[in-house]
């Protein structure tokens, strides 16, 4: 059998649509996992031993078991206790549970990297904890977080292919269905691989851009803010 990549062309619209599903389940679960992970990270740093213990146990379990198992659990095991979910919903739930555990630890590392003294200085001028978090801790934590966070995001993008096993029509499942009916595995898998690479490359580029943007001292203030702070006239 000869290899003919031209064969893929008629299937591209289907593959792109499937890639759209990959993007949706990845981004949605990552977004949920980021918000939850943030609050879990705060809980992990709280004064309450119960909260800390609960989050520690959560991370232990969901970082310590495969996402494939989470997917099976939510889709195949949950109905036994009366919870029946559509494949899409089940995928979002399972993938969110999984990535939350990683994001919790990544965000915590960033939040804890801000030196204690800077927080005390903010307390000393009379800032409350939410303000300190917003103006002092988070802006600096972002710089620490960005590399591991994007690494996890990319890893999660590839991991979304596991949702194929619970029949979510994402890129991997769609590619499998095409080559099992056409026997053009090399062409289709290469095309699917290329699409994954495009998606993850976009994230890598986003990371580059974010890293540069977060170098505040090189970037400096925006022109508008600088003008306002230096009391310069609006034009000139």
């Amino acid at each position: 059998m000869n290899i003919d990549f031209g064969f893929v062309i008629p299937y591209l619209p289907i593959l792109f649509k499937a890639a759209g599903m990959t993007i949706v389940i990845t981004v949605l679960s990552q977004a949920i996992g980021t918000v939850l992970g943030f609050f879990f990270a705060l809980a992990r740093m709280s004064n309450s031993a119960i909260l800390r213990g609960a989050v520690w146990t959560y991370v232990l379990i969901f970082r310590g078991t495969p996402m494939l198992l989470h997917l099976f659990y939510v889709y195949y095991a949950a109905p036994a206790v009366g919870i029946t979910l559509e494949p899409f919903t089940a995928a979002i739930v399972a993938m969110s549970l999984s990535t939350t555990a990683y994001n919790c630890e990544i965000l915590r590392a960033g939040l804890q990297a801000v030196p204690r003294g800077q927080i005390e200085a903010a307390q000393a001028v009379g800032m409350t904890w939410p303000r300190i978090l917003r103006t002092i801790v988070i802006p600096q934590a972002l710089r620490v977080i960005i590399v591991p966070y994007m690494t996890n995001f990319i890893s999660h993008t590839k991991g979304s292919s596991l949702a194929s096993v619970i029949t979510v029509p994402e890129l991997m499942l769609t590619a499998q269905m095409i080559y099992s009916s056409t026997y053009r595995a090399i062409e289709i898998l290469t095309a699917a691989g290329a699409i994954y690479l495009i998606l993850t490359s976009a994230l890598s580029l986003a990371q580059l851009w974010l890293e540069r943007w977060l170098r505040y001292d090189e970037r400096g203030l925006s022109r508008r803010r600088r003008r306002a702070l230096l009391l310069l006239p609006r034009h000139g």
């Binding site: 200085a121 000393a124 009379g126």
Partner: peptide, 22 residues
């Protein structure tokens, strides 16, 4: 507590300026 601290200025040995602010 924050409102009370705003009335009390504090200068630290290691400055503790916020590095992401001018």
């Amino acid at each position: 507590l924050a409102a009370q601290r705003a009335e009390i200025g504090m200068v630290f040995q290691l400055f503790h300026l916020w590095p992401h602010k001018t």
